[in-house]
Amino acid sequence: MQSFLQNCCSLLFLVAITCGCQPSNPTGNSDTEQPDTGSHLTQALLLIQKMPFDLNDKNKVDGPYQQRKQVTIPSDLPPQNKWVMFEGPVLENDKVAYRFYADSRHRFDIYGKRVPDLVMDTVSWKYHDIMDWGSDILKVGNSLGLGSPAVYFQDSVYTFSNCDTKTIEVIETGGEKSMIRTTFKGLLIGGKTMDIVQDWTIEAGDYYSTIDLYMPEGVKLPDGMRFATGIVSLLPEVTSGTANGFDYLMNWGKQSFHKEGMGMAVMAKAEYGPQAIEDELSHLLVFDATEKVSYRFMAVWERDQSQTTNATDFKEMVEAATK
């Protein structure tokens, strides 16, 4: 009997070791070096190849991506490069994830999430496919995507695309809030150069994230220029509204990358004087602000955890996000 018990214990021990040695990686991704999220509720990802960027080999992946605290973007970094994972930094919480392109486009994009876990550090380059975790759900093109910063001047929209230097820095990651700062030096808009800082944050439990744009202390945008943002015109109309001291633009419809139901919204406090203006590519929210502005952008998808399926429910979520 003693020998039998010893044999059983030995067998159970071997099974436990064998099971414990298998790494958990549901997406099968080998391209990223996973940061330790622990019990974090949010994360900021700035995943870069260890090697210097080479324009002649923009898709080269020479080893794991490394989480960086700060990087100055190479002036020749093109769209569709693989030097930066996801082509730019990501903010993620338990509800949603967003990114912006690190190259000259500087537009915001959306990752719909079907699970509450922090997963973006395990996602491969196949993020356009609908997976168990979710998918990239927005086609941005030359529009403002969702919530991209811009300047409105002489009836034209200028994105933050042409600058001398662009530095991206992870200010905070993990816990209840994560934040990424982007500093634009020598940003050229309408023939004028300026410096602008973008602080971008996300908090646990929210479907929205927040953008704070500001000039150096005591400096304003040149005469006639105003800060702006917007929503890509995948649908012909947006609904405007006011709630809890915020003005907002929103829409709902089959506008996701996969032609599924998706809602998008931008919102800002009335003190910034937001004004709805139509543009060829985007539904604009133009602010009566020349030194600083704070606004929020928000997206939900019919497959995500909100289970939103119509404009009425999305409107309730948007107005709740202004509290």
Score class of each variant (00 low, 15 high):
residue 52 P to H: 10
residue 315 K to W: 00
residue 145 G to N: 05
residue 189 I to G: 00
residue 5 L to T: 12
residue 232 V to F: 08
residue 175 G to E: 11
residue 231 I to W: 05
residue 222 P to L: 04
residue 187 L to H: 02
residue 273 G to W: 03
residue 286 V to P: 01
residue 303 R to Y: 07
residue 215 M to N: 11
residue 147 G to C: 05
residue 303 R to E: 04
residue 164 D to T: 13
residue 166 K to H: 01
residue 293 V to S: 00
residue 237 E to F: 06
residue 277 I to L: 13
residue 83 W to L: 01
residue 110 I to D: 04
residue 29 N to M: 08
residue 50 K to C: 07
residue 22 Q to P: 01
residue 179 M to A: 14
residue 283 H to G: 11
residue 203 E to G: 14
residue 227 F to S: 00
residue 161 S to H: 05
residue 208 Y to F: 09
residue 195 D to F: 02
residue 249 L to Y: 00
residue 171 I to K: 13
residue 207 Y to D: 14
residue 283 H to L: 10
residue 198 Q to W: 06
residue 198 Q to P: 00
residue 278 E to I: 08
residue 263 G to N: 12
residue 24 S to G: 07
residue 27 T to A: 14
residue 248 Y to M: 03
residue 205 G to M: 09
residue 99 R to W: 02
residue 71 V to Y: 08
residue 181 R to T: 12
residue 163 C to F: 03
residue 19 C to P: 03
residue 305 Q to L: 12
residue 75 S to V: 14
residue 6 Q to H: 13
residue 164 D to L: 08
residue 245 G to M: 02
residue 115 V to G: 05
residue 136 D to S: 11
residue 17 I to F: 10
residue 266 V to G: 04
residue 33 E to W: 05
residue 264 M to Y: 05
residue 214 Y to Q: 09
residue 184 F to T: 10
residue 257 F to E: 13
residue 51 M to S: 14
residue 56 N to P: 00
residue 188 L to W: 01
residue 17 I to R: 14
residue 105 R to V: 01
residue 302 E to F: 05
residue 74 P to W: 06
residue 206 D to M: 11
residue 223 D to G: 09
residue 281 L to H: 06
residue 180 I to Y: 00
residue 98 Y to D: 05
residue 153 F to V: 08
residue 309 T to W: 02
residue 82 K to I: 07
residue 246 F to V: 02
residue 29 N to S: 13
residue 15 V to C: 15
residue 279 D to C: 10
residue 142 N to Q: 15
residue 33 E to D: 14
residue 53 F to C: 06
residue 11 L to T: 12
residue 109 D to Q: 08
residue 46 L to R: 06
residue 215 M to V: 12
residue 20 G to T: 09
residue 65 Y to A: 13
residue 20 G to V: 03
residue 319 E to L: 03
residue 143 S to W: 09
residue 129 D to T: 11
residue 47 L to N: 04
residue 93 N to S: 06
residue 58 K to E: 11
residue 304 D to W: 01
residue 3 S to A: 15
residue 307 Q to G: 11
residue 299 A to E: 09
residue 79 P to M: 15
residue 299 A to Q: 09
residue 97 A to Y: 09
residue 43 Q to K: 11
residue 249 L to I: 07
residue 241 G to Q: 10
residue 285 L to G: 06
residue 295 Y to F: 03
residue 305 Q to Y: 02
residue 9 C to W: 12
residue 158 Y to S: 03
residue 164 D to R: 10
residue 130 I to D: 08
residue 119 V to Q: 07
residue 69 K to D: 12
residue 227 F to D: 00
residue 221 L to N: 02
residue 199 D to G: 09
residue 7 N to W: 14
residue 57 D to S: 14
residue 207 Y to I: 12
residue 4 F to T: 15
residue 95 K to F: 01
residue 91 L to A: 09
residue 28 G to T: 11
residue 235 L to F: 05
residue 45 L to Y: 05
residue 94 D to N: 15
residue 180 I to E: 02
residue 311 A to D: 12
residue 261 G to I: 08
residue 86 F to N: 10
residue 252 W to R: 00
residue 223 D to S: 08
residue 100 F to V: 04
residue 218 G to I: 11
residue 285 L to K: 07
residue 230 G to A: 04
residue 44 A to R: 06
